[in-house]
Each structure stands twice: as C-alpha cells, then as structure tokens.
Design a protein around this nucleic acid. Structure first.
Lengths: 342, 342
DNA sequence: CTGAAAGCGCTTACAG
DNA sequence: CTGAAAGCGCTTACAG
C-alpha cells in the first residue's frame, strides 16, 4: 500500500507537504496542492490513522460502553451519541458489557490501550475504581444513566426517583395500595432510586410499604417474567398493581401475567419505567425517559471536555421523565382513599 | 504517562525485553520477567496499542457495519459477532449506516484509515464499488445479510426467498388470494428475494399476482404504517392478508390496522419476515431468521480469513429460516382452493 | 537469554 | 511557501 512517501515522490515534494495538504494546515501554493491531490488520487492513497494518531496524540475516537445493546433504550442513546460525534468528526466505539463487571474491566483496559480520546460509560456496578483508573490516565470521562456515589465525575442521567414517585402516586391515587415493584439490585443507582421514589410516594400518602412487594432482579425480560411468577404464586394478599422497573422487565411482566391467566388491567394494573419498545399498540402507562437526548447531552459534554472548552468536574445533569398514562391501569375507587388503610 | 522506556529503565533492561514480556514472545529469564512485571505494576504502565499496531501491522479490530442499530435483528447479530470475536481477542467497532450510502462510504473510508483487520459489512445498496475498494486494499471482508450481485465476495445470509415462499404458500393454503406484500426497494437483495419467493408461491399455485399488492417502502415502522394506510385506503378489492417484509414493517402494519379499525386476524391476516421483537405476547406468524448464528458464522469466517486459515472467496452461506405459525392468520376456507381463481 | 540499531508512517519544531 | 531532521512508542531482524 502506498505511504505518504510514495505520494510525496510522485508529486515531487517532501512528505511533510503531503501531510499539510491532507490536514489542511499551513500555507500551500495552490499548484502544489493540486499536484499532491492528484498524486493521492492516482495512487489511491489512504492515510494511516494509526501513525497520525500516534504523532497527534489524538485518535478522534470515543468509547461508548453500554450494559445491554439489545435494549432499545441503549440503542437510542447510541444514536444520540453518534449524531453528536459525527457532527465534529469523532467516531464511536460501541462496547457492550452485558452487565458483567469482567467484561467492563476488560473493555476499559483495551480501550485505554487503544488511546480513545474519551469515555462515555454506563457503569455495571457502583464501584468507582474503574472510573478512577480512567481519570488517573487523564482521559476525559462522562458517566451516563447511572451514578457512582463514591466517584467524582460528571454524570448525565434521567430522574429515576421522580419518575418512580409519579408512577407510584398515580397508582395510589387510583386507589391501589398493594403495589409491587420489580426492580434491580441497589448497586445500580437507577434501581435503587426507583425504589426510593416508590417509597416516597407511599410515605407521602401515609401508606405503609410491604417489603414483600419489593423484588430485586435484573433488567431483563426473563427476570421480569420470573419475578412476576414468584410474586403472583407466593405473595398474599395478591398485589393489585405491578410497577416494572424498566422496559424489558415490563415485557416479562406482561408475558407472565398472560401465561398465568391474569388480565391487564382488569385483574392487575401495570406501569413501567421506560416506554415500551416497538409496541404493536401503545397500551402501558409509563414514565418515559428521553434516551436520544441523554446520549446527545452526554456526548456533547464529553466532546467539550476533550476540547477543553469545559473543565472536567462533578456535574450531575438530570433530565426529566414524562408520565404517559394509557390503558393498563384500573381505578380501585369509588372507595375513598383513606389516609392510612393498612 | 509512562512508556515502555520508563518501564525498561526501572527494571534495568532494554525496552525490547519489556516488549517480550508483554507479548509473551521469545525467551526471558524468570527473574527478569518478574522484575519487568513489577515495574509495569508500579508504574501502572498501559501499552500504547497505536504504536504496537503500527509496527505489527495488525490492530485486532474488525468493523461491523450495520444498517439499523435500533433493530433487534441487528443487535442480535452484533452479539453473535462480539462473542465470536472476544473468543480470540478481537475487538468490534460497530457502525450504523442508517441505510444511507453517504454514511456507509464515510465509515468505510474512516475504517480503512484506522487499519481495521477486517470488515463485516451489511451493504446499504447493491453497488459493488464499496466492496471492491476494501478488497483492493487487501483487507478481508465478509458481506452479511445482503448479496451484491456484481461483487466477488463471501456472503453469509438467511434464505429470504425460501422464507417468503413458505409464508406465502401458508396463506395461499389457508385460501387467501389477495395477499399484499410490503417490502423494500429491489436494490436490497433481501427485499427483492422476499418478493421473488412470494411470486414463486403464487406461480406454483397457478394464481395470478396483482402488482397493486406489491409495495416497496423501507425497513422501518413508519414506512410499514404508511404502506398499510395507502393499501387499505386505495387498493380494491381489499387484501385479505398482509405479508410484512421485516419485523419493523410488521409493527407498522399492526399499528396501522389497529388505527384504521381492522382486527387481526378477523378482518386481515398478517405474517412477517423476522420474529417480532419484545412482543408482549407472541401472536404473529413469522419466518424467523437466526440472527445470532448469522453473526457468529460471518465473524468466524472473517476471523479465519484474516488468520489465513481460509482463503477469501465467493462463498454464499445461506442459513435456513423457520416458519412459526401463531394466531395472526384466518382460514378463508372451507371454500376449496381453486387451481386458478383469478 | 538480552540488547543496539533501524524503522513502522506519520507530524512537530525549526530553518530558510 | 517548502523541507531536513528528529521523534511519537513500539517491534523486527540481527548480533552476541
């Protein structure tokens, strides 16, 4: 394959001149530029970005590390990130950790070696050492979707607590008291905060929370299904409503309820965090995040930090969620809401 | 940041010795290795993969270029590719062309510069120049999902023609004759071949195809919705069945039918290519591909070609599709099927 | 088993 | 406006 020397020889200039043409830097006589461009064309020269990056100390690549690439929430974030990056000629390396700490650690190591200019990280757990490792090397990082309490880092996320609070209050106002929440391990900040919001709504209403109705699984359809089966088979009295902690859990909940013979909303009401992907008919009441904006915001912040237009810091940028009420909930009224009916 | 020289100095060896420890190449005295490893640890040394790749002429990265990252079909392929690659220490750069030729071309150029070891490409259109550009530079490539008639290249794909044939025959056997197919431009081989299979079933049955029932849109929900509206409002006599060309089109079809007041399967039967993502209740009869295997197969072939265990060639590896019958189709019998009822 | 020299393909900093 | 020299951080090929 031809190198910059071959182009230089053919255009009868020095390699550095070819470099200047390619990078549009410094002054070049118009006729020289044309000669070089022609040589590039004739040789079908493709610059070696490895060599260029090694010298420039800049790869124009950022890493986007997500936890589940099959989830539309993350693919939509990815589009936001891509759009922000392609605006300014950056490329995105997309990595999927599958919620596994070992994969996360491995990717971070590889990406540090590959000298990506920045990291957009959705951390698997709540450990801060992985963030610190990146920061120690001076590589800009923005954490997305999930907080890490012990880390000093910029975060862009949705308001999980508020969304969960509003969904729960909505159910309480419809007269529900036995509301189950199917969430995830409290090591994941979104799972923890969604349970927090749920509790706050109960407390505000003066209603007691039944710990048996708070389940912890994973952000997967299979887990939502299993939690629902456990719930409906073993917990008594039965819940009258189920709060699914994310979109995939919601799919599992709906499938399980169907298989168990419960109708929604007649027998059980259902709400979910995240809008449901590719629903053939919008049906479930949800707290919808704005994943595209999440991706856009986080990427733009990272890009600004890389370009030193912004300092790295400990921002906590929280995007609002939207409550969308549909047909998946039944009112348990007209019985009046009692201040404390437990 | 410390370089290999710093490690070498600290371990009192030459840089090349450090290199040998890192790459596990050549003989090293055990005590030397330990000294080097300790220095690496103490300095928190991270090798610069840019420099290493420049020398090795190998980046251990392959590019996966897909057409729609929000489609579960592609994300599942991606998982197959990732699993195959992580087996042998390769990394995947995932790029999303959004079915746009300009984005495709741009990504290919950038990736060639970045010296990826190979390409897994789902071509946007049927043009072969993009493939030739990659081949000219001697970079291994495997085309995935879609054929390019004029290119001499290895392909891994599903049997679109057969799947479409079987779905259509299934509807014909139920007594349907006015079967609409909502596909995509024939520049995309899968779209073309699905219409081919549809035609073959009609021909075999001795039934005539009504060109007004063959629609061409895009592989998007919005497009499926629009085509369905056009179809049901303007084409007479109304179709009794709709064949959705992919999963996203199917979602659009179902949404549109619902909004227009048609019930499935009572008023209209529906079948689709690709299983439906995250259905809250499996309901539609489909020809299901095996995207995970598609990704795995294509990646393994590419890896073998890169490692020169296999020659590059013009293989056409076709994976079978599975017909899954569910509740979305109604029999128009008992009227007997006439050999030619048009 | 270990190392000095040269070079991968670019670009910075200086000179003219 | 253009170029010769040096170097980015590694590793190949040779020498010992």
């Amino acid at each position: 394959m031809p190198t910059i020397r071959d182009v230089a020889r053919r255009a009868r200039v020095a390699p550095i001149t070819v470099s200047r043409v390619i990078n549009n830097s410094g002054y070049i006589r118009e006729s020289t530029r044309r000669r070089v461009e022609q040589a590039i064309e004739e040789l079908e020269y493709v610059p070696n970005a490895l060599a260029s990056s090694l010298r420039f100390n800049k790869t124009n690549m950022i890493a986007l590390v997500v936890t589940d690439i099959t989830n539309p929430f993350w693919t939509t974030i990815t589009r936001g990130v891509e759009d922000a990056c392609s605006e300014c000629g950056m490329n995105v390396i997309l990595c999927n950790t599958d919620e596994r700490p070992d994969k996360e650690e491995n990717y971070i190591n590889v990406l540090l070696q590959k000298q990506t200019d920045g990291f957009l990280l959705a951390p698997v757990g709540g450990r801060s050492d992985i963030v610190r490792k990146i920061q120690k090397r001076g590589v800009p990082i923005v954490v997305i979707d999930r907080q890490i309490p012990s880390a000093h880092v910029d975060v862009v996320r949705s308001d999980s607590e508020d969304g969960a609070y509003r969904l729960t209050r909505y159910l309480l106002e419809l007269g529900h008291r036995r509301i189950a929440i199917l969430s995830v391990s409290s090591h994941i900040s979104t799972g923890r905060q969604r349970v927090d919001g749920y509790r706050r709504a109960f407390v505000e209403q003066g209603a007691a929370v039944d710990p048996a109705l708070i389940l912890h699984g994973e952000y997967k359809g299979q887990s939502g299904y299993q939690m629902t089966v456990d719930l409906m088979q073993h917990v008594r009295p039965l819940p009258t409503a189920i709060f699914a902690g994310n979109n995939f859990i919601a799919v599992g909940v709906l499938n399980a309820l169907h298989d168990l013979g419960f109708r929604v909303p007649d027998d059980v009401s259902v709400v979910a965090f995240d809008d449901l992907p590719y629903a053939t008919e919008p049906f479930v009441t949800v707290a919808a995040q704005s994943p595209y904006e999440l991706g856009l915001t986080a990427a733009n912040l990272l890009i600004d930090i890389i370009a030193k237009r912004e300092p790295a810091g400990t921002r906590d940028i929280v995007l609002p969620v939207e409550l969308i009420t549909r047909r998946s909930c039944r009112a348990l009224l007209p019985e009046p809401i009692l201040p404390d009916d437990t």
